[in-house]
Write a protein that binds this DNA or RNA. Structure first.
Lengths: 332, 332
DNA sequence: GTGAAAGCGCTAACAC
DNA sequence: GTGTTAGCGCTTTCAC
């Protein structure tokens, strides 16, 4: 930088001003500096900038590792907003947020992040939110389901979305409906269950407890749950899975057992993730705007970091996607 | 740090020594320092460390954006090795490496990375490799197919793997074999094509040019290619797709056209990515050890960064996975 | 084994 | 509009 200043015949500070697009620099001087920067192939040292500005320009994304397509959507949402900015994205997959909540804060701290984006399930962990507040690290939450007063957040209505997809299945005539829940440490599992319950109660359908299975949001857990549900005589005519990966697992099991989907069994998922579109039959699901929510959460975070006014909440909408994995129950 | 030094009754330098596990510190002093660190809840400033050590402890991962499961495997491989280290992973998806090769170097430079991991296709771009050498940024290459003398790299034999899977299809009795190639800007597309060619020539099967289609490694491109192949009378009895996503796309098209897989049409993929296991019929494919290759490339990179001796090459092995998407051709 | 001094490359604060 | 000075928090160098 000293060389650049010399070459342009100005002080270091002026070079700094030009590089940071500060006002009060004569265009002629600015040009001279830019020319020197180019010809000397100068690149500012991010660490030195960070040291004096007390920032690292690093943003973390903390997630658990359910399905690749979900993870990639989260990342792409954040990266879309970060493109062209000085900030960079650090990915922080955590094997189990609920088991590692205490270890997470020191980890984030030692990573010297300016802020973190918290999708589920981390966004619903009071310990994590409090820990971040305690060390003064900013955060934005993607689709949280509780602690409404904490941090800027993007929202969707998990309950309503789940209710809608259950209503679709009921409207087709199904009454023997099983459920594959997601990871119980994720609040969204509870919210979605509540949506299902509302739809079922409204239609006067009693929920059979032995038709509620628990999964982990993974394909394998969906298969395991579906095996328990389908491998017996009085089996359901429809399965509501709390995400697409588990729904695809259920379809796989049905196929292995020679049960036709959707002829003999309807299956629905949740998310509209990539797998739902590449599976056959294409999966009836409800679109969760993960990309948009993460992008907007990142946007709010940047605003906060720049000290600008920022919305406390932005709401995104789900969308029921009726595809080919649902049909009336057999005999209707 | 000054506070810690005061509290422990030592100099700043001694605190630094303790924190960096340098030798020549009395155990008693070390304990006193550690105690002060704990009680003051001191955390070193990464930027300041980086400034003086001329390192950012950031490692980049540059990839194009084909399939989520592939991307996640790359990331997991790198992160597995990075866990517990000071280094952190910056993800750098690039829409098209071949179109943005020149822009990439300035981007990496301004991101202040210590090193980059280069999976295909970036690892096969001479401009990128030369550019990195020019600015003195270290790199490791994952599964490159040319420029054997550049950088530490992990290898697999794309040609042999492709040949093996083609041989499997031929051994089943197929002679009407179509091919869906991957993105032509990826060298692996060429290598895999070469493997197919060897197997076909060895079996005296002439390759019909109108049965070679070009995809982009995406599900959609696989569907489009398969449509062109299957939507006519003289269609092939087998399709060799250069990755799993395209193979799954081909199966989808077959289904939409009422063509039974594998009864009337055999389809194989490449990668053993997650989709190959969750699709039905489960996809016959060849396992590409992406996770292991990326983990090892990261390992070699760290060794290099620490100034240690490091292997120039590590070879990983592919594995033919015969599943349910292949069968003898109809009428055999 | 431990400490003092210098300085990494940049920007904030203020002077002019 | 532009320059000067100081200092961010750490490690390197070298003295003891």
């Amino acid at each position: 930088m000293i060389d650049v200043a010399k070459a342009a015949g100005v002080s270091q500070k002026t070079v700094s001003r030009v590089l940071n697009d500060e006002p009060h620099v004569k265009p002629a001087v600015r040009d001279r500096v830019m020319h020197a920067v180019k010809s000397l192939n100068y690149h500012p040292n991010v660490n030195a900038q960070g040291l004096v500005q007390r920032r690292s320009y690093l943003i973390g994304l903390v997630y658990e590792n359910p399905s690749p397509s979900y993870v990639v959507e989260l990342q792409q949402g954040a990266l879309e907003r970060l493109a062209g900015e000085r900030y960079r994205l650090i990915v922080l997959p955590v094997s189990s947020v609920s088991q590692n909540a205490e270890k997470l804060i020191p980890l984030l701290r030692s990573t010297a992040l300016d802020a973190v984006i918290l999708p589920p399930p981390a966004c619903d962990h009071k310990d994590i939110l409090d820990g971040l507040d305690a060390i003064g690290m900013r955060y934005a939450r993607v689709a949280p389901t509780r602690y409404e007063d904490l941090g800027p957040r993007t929202l969707m209505d998990d309950v309503a979305a789940a209710q809608e997809i259950a209503e679709h299945v009921i409207a087709l005539g199904h009454r023997d409906i099983a459920i594959i829940k997601g990871d119980p440490t994720h609040m969204s599992s509870i919210a979605r269950m509540q949506g299902y319950s509302r739809a079922l109660s409204a239609a006067d359908i009693r929920i059979r407890l032995d038709w509620i299975e628990e999964g982990r949001f993974t394909f394998e857990s969906g298969m395991a749950a579906a095996k328990r549900l389908l491998d017996r005589k009085d089996r359901p005519t429809a399965i509501l899975a709390q995400n697409d990966d588990m729904a695809v697992g259920a379809i796989m099991v049905a196929r292995d057992l020679g049960i036709d989907v959707p002829g003999q069994l309807s299956v629905v998922g949740f998310d509209d993730s990539e797998v739902s579109r590449i599976t056959w039959p294409r999966l009836t699901t409800v679109r969760q705007p993960v990309f948009e929510m993460t992008r907007d959460a990142t946007d709010m975070l940047l605003a906060k970091l720049e000290g600008k006014e920022c919305d406390a909440v932005r709401v995104h909408h789900h969308e029921l996607l009726i595809r080919q994995s649902t049909a009336p129950p057999p005999g209707r």
